[in-house]
Design a protein around this nucleic acid. Structure first.
Length: 573
DNA sequence: AGTCGCTTGACTTTCACAGTCCACTGTGA
């Protein structure tokens, strides 16, 4: 099985982590991180590029040396340098850097000075008050470590949806080829398109379960077989993700896929309805008394409990059953409804591709428009544009647009919201743009009231069309900054300002729940990829999935509008 | 250390802030 891009990228990132802890040359560390980003952003499979003999050093930030290392990883699955560096290192130090405020230097210092070997050790040391005694550490740091470790979500491993797909899609393709497999599908939160996935639940319809499972555990990414029987098996893949496989007879398919898709609460509600109708619903089928009366398809299951089929993205018991009963299920937005992307970056700031390259990639996706929204001047580390740079970019975009037919680049900016809610550029400049996204990138630690006020003040400017990644969360990595979302959404509604649903699978910010709240108050949502390279535009589908989980219709989503209607919608005053 | 554009060497994100050592370092965006 070919090595996935994400696997190569995380090997490089892992090496960078270890080197950083070892206090290696910072440029060396950065070389690996840059390469990891390049690899992750590639829409083509690096493994297949190696197979076809493509020159990897053509890729940005990849030279002869890294091209060689990548080739080795693809051919052998091994990365000798990483193994060598990891040999005398404690992985727990890497885990400790996930504690906010603890980076490689401090983690290493703590583990060395206190002779620790696990996060549990670290927690004990914090409890005992030993950390405050280490030079460079004090009471505050100790209290923070104690608090973060107590919350306990540091080590729980969930996978972002895109990473899970990397592992799941080849696996399900493999399973479908196994002799005797009639049907195979991934259920669970993966099918519900939840933003992170804990493990993969795979359902197979087939006769000879034993043989099917033998073939399943022979999949070459299987690292460990935890259990293995005639109807079910649990394994861990080398990526660390757990996979549960269940084999059922085809006549149980509908009941089983319904059951394994969940959510648990949705299932409980469904079973209750079955009971009310004198039926019993379980994973094998629908039963009246002792006799089976259905369950071959999901339609049959829902029909038996008096409901139309409900899309998996809605199955959270958040009112979908009542809505189905009333014939009031939402007409969910689809990827085909999307006419363009309203947040992207170019080489002018921290993107990887030019205006023209981004435009062509957007046209290839069938879009009618793409907004270029490079960073503003305060974002120095992201190469933020000066006012002059932005003026020039506006001209460049106008010139490019003259050459396009039926497509339009929108001149925009992702302007920083400063601490007091002022914008990084004056309205006089922003008014020259087609569209303005305003985002927070600094001062993430303000209290709830200040942070909420700050964003609302930014929305007071009539030039601001969209608030970018509104809560600042990074899935599994950074909690949202404290915000009064209700007040924020109301303020957005009052001002006719849209909120972004950032489609990057590391963010998916807004959450499904906030999307729904916003739409209920009439706030439009922009589903935007925040692409930093042409490949990043492909993340749109994750945003659409999230929007669907948030019950959004086509009309709730800003970038389903034609340019003609969008340009009118962007005029706030 | 590694890339890139040039052939032998220049360049690689910058800056504010918290926290502890009150001048400095590490962290995080």
């Amino acid at each position: 099985m070919p090595v996935h891009n994400s696997e190569i990228a995380s090997k490089f990132d892992h090496l960078a982590d270890l080197l950083e802890i070892k206090d290696a040359n910072e440029f060396r560390v950065r070389a690996y991180r840059n390469a990891a980003n390049t690899i992750r952003d590639q829409s083509r499979s690096i493994a297949s590029m190696v197979k076809e003999g493509d020159d990897l050093s053509e890729l940005p930030d990849i030279g002869d040396d890294l091209a060689g290392k990548i080739t080795t990883i693809v051919r052998t699955g091994k990365f000798p340098l990483l193994e060598e560096v990891a040999e005398d290192m404690d992985e727990a130090i890497v885990d400790a850097t996930r504690i906010p405020g603890i980076g490689p230097k401090r983690a290493k210092a703590l583990f060395d000075m206190l002779d620790l070997s696990s996060l549990d050790d670290l927690e004990d040391a914090a409890e005992e008050g030993e950390i405050a005694d280490v030079s460079g550490f004090g009471e505050k740091t100790q209290a923070r470590i104690k608090k973060e470790l107590k919350q306990g979500d540091i080590t729980e491993q969930r996978f972002h949806l895109d990473t899970a797909e990397d592992f799941a899609e080849p696996l399900i393709a493999y399973i479908r080829e196994i002799d005797g497999v009639e049907k195979a599908e991934i259920a669970g939160s993966y099918r519900r398109r939840k933003e992170t996935v804990g493990d993969l639940d795979i359902l197979v319809a087939g006769q000879d379960g034993g043989a099917i499972i033998d073939a399943f555990v022979a999949y070459d990414e299987v690292d460990e077989v935890e259990s293995k029987g005639k109807t079910r098996s649990t394994v861990t893949l080398r990526s660390g993700i757990n996979v549960d496989l269940r084999v059922i007879p085809e006549e149980s398919w509908g009941a089983a896929i319904h059951y394994f898709t969940g959510s648990k609460k949705h299932n409980v509600a469904g079973r209750r309805r079955a009971q009310d109708r004198g039926l019993k619903l379980n994973e094998y089928g629908l039963y009246e008394e002792k006799s089976r009366v259905g369950g071959a398809t999901e339609d049959e299951v829902y029909d038996a409990i008096g409901l139309p089929w409900i899309d998996p993205v809605l199955r959270e018991d958040r009112g979908e059953i009542e809505a189905a009963e009333e014939g009031d299920l939402p007409d969910l937005v689809t990827l085909d409804d999307i006419r363009g992307d309203l947040h992207s970056h170019t080489t002018a700031s921290d993107g990887k591709h030019s205006l023209r390259q981004m435009a062509e990639a957007a046209m290839d996706r069938g879009y009618k428009y793409l907004a270029i929204t490079d960073h503003s001047k305060s974002q120095t580390q992201a190469g933020g544009l000066s006012a002059d740079d932005l003026e020039r970019q506006i001209d460049d975009i106008a010139e490019l647009n003259d050459g396009f037919n039926g497509f339009r680049l929108l001149a925009g900016c992702e302007v920083d919201i400063l601490e007091d809610g002022d914008l990084d550029f004056p309205d006089s400049l922003l008014s020259k743009l087609d569209l303005v996204v305003a985002s927070i990138h600094s001062k993430l630690d303000l209290d709830e009231e200040a942070q909420t006020d700050r964003i609302i003040r930014a929305m007071d400017s009539p030039e601001v069309n969209i608030i970018g990644h509104p809560t600042g969360r990074m899935l599994e990595k950074r909690r949202p900054y404290p915000l009064d979302m209700e007040r924020l959404i109301e303020a957005a509604a009052d001002r006719g300002c849209a909120l972004e649903l950032n489609a990057n699978p590391n963010r998916l910010d807004l959450s499904d729940i906030h999307c729904r709240q916003a739409a209920e108050l009439g706030v439009r949502i922009a589903i935007s990829t925040d692409a930093h390279a042409t490949g990043g535009l492909g993340n749109m589908r994750y945003g659409v999935d999230q929007a669907r989980r948030g019950w959004l219709n086509r009309k709730d989503v800003l970038n389903t509008l034609s340019w003609h209607n969008l340009s009118r919608a962007l005029k706030r005053s």
